[in-house]
């Protein structure tokens, strides 16, 4: 299979869907002439023109609302947030309008819109620019929340998102854009609500997504050399959550660690723990542990940021603890 970068896989998904369906439009800050702040949309303006690849002013609430209005009346807009941090000024549009229009209208008005962009910490960009927003959006019924960790998933899930008749919050790992991976030549649509077993193992189930996915895969490799066999599960969609795959794995390994970048208070990390303790209680040989970012606004200083973002050491320690290794 050919190797494709995560950012290029996302672009392929958008380009293919835009060729296929003239109602798909893309809008956001610097998506056109600038070729995308993170170059995800590079070349799309040239191919599709400025009627369909639309540079917006800095007005997230405005263009998110425009996308909702257009979506409920016949278009399939893709909104790019330069980063998800800036979605917070459009939170009302996503939560009150995109997520509720179908329900409020008694099922008359589906809202086929995709909100996408880079999520979570980058490198030393400080507290206002480092949010992992998945807890904010997974809390909301009426939204899909998707978070691919590999190029293949990025492409297949984004295509599904664009064809979905419902609002999708599509989170991309800021630090994953350069990651390379195999992506099939032929068309692939990856369904929502289906987790992926990223690594098979027998001793402990580790559930993770986004940037920590890379950390976990590395630690799992290392631990394998020490005879600890990790089964790594990437949920791929956080809402709906494929808890069955996770629970089945835990029934096999009897141990579970959840690793994520969002703050430890609540969120999908805690949701997964809840599902596992409910559905696999009798199978557990140890308390379920989480390795997460620290519970503070992101500091700028590199020494501190390195500690705050979930570290290899914390992942290793959590796995060792549930395995009662010392």
């Amino acid at each position: 299979m050919r190797e494709v970068r995560y950012r290029d896989a996302l672009r392929e998904a958008m380009a293919e869907e835009m060729r296929r369906d003239p109602t798909v439009v893309l809008m956001g800050e610097e998506v056109g002439h600038y070729q995308g702040a993170y170059k995800v949309t590079q070349g799309l303006l040239e191919e599709f023109g400025d009627q369909r690849v639309i540079d917006t002013p800095i007005a997230e609430a405005g263009f998110s609302g425009i996308a909702v209005g257009a979506a409920m009346t016949g278009l399939r807009p893709i909104v790019e947030f330069m980063t998800w941090n800036f979605s917070l000024v459009a939170f009302d549009q996503i939560v009150n309008n995109a997520a509720k229009m179908y329900q409020m209208s008694g099922g008359q008005l589906p809202v086929p819109v995709v909100f996408r962009g880079p999520n979570a910490s980058a490198r030393q960009v400080g507290s206002q620019h480092s949010h992992a927003v998945e807890p904010f959006y997974t809390n909301v019924p009426g939204l899909y929340v998707v978070y691919p960790s590999t190029p293949r998933d990025a492409k297949g899930l984004l295509k599904t998102a664009i064809r979905s008749d419902n609002p999708v919050v599509f989170l991309e790992g800021e630090t994953l854009y350069n990651a390379k991976g195999e992506v099939p030549e032929e068309e692939e649509l990856i369904p929502f609500g289906v987790a992926r077993v990223a690594r098979e193992g027998t001793d402990v189930t580790v559930v993770t997504w986004g940037r920590p996915y890379v950390t976990v895969m590395k630690v799992a490799e290392e631990l394998a050399e020490r005879g600890v066999s990790c089964e790594v599960i990437d949920p791929r969609t956080l809402r709906p959550l494929d808890h069955e795959t996770i629970v089945e794995s835990v029934k096999k390994t009897n141990r579970c660690v959840v690793v994520h970048e969002h703050w430890p208070y609540g969120g999908p990390g805690a949701e997964i723990v809840d599902r596992v303790q409910r559905d696999a209680f009798d199978y557990l040989d140890a308390p379920i542990l989480r390795a997460t970012n620290l519970d503070v606004p992101m500091p700028y200083a590199i020494e501190l940021e390195n500690e705050v973002i979930v570290t290899e050491a914390r992942v290793r320690e959590a796995i060792e603890r549930v395995c009662y290794l010392d």
Binding site: V125, S127, H129, Y300, A301, L304
Partner: peptide, 10 residues
């Protein structure tokens, strides 16, 4: 000025 917590932007 912000004890290294803020950085350039803060």
């Amino acid at each position: 000025c912000s004890r290294g917590l803020g950085g350039s932007m803060h």
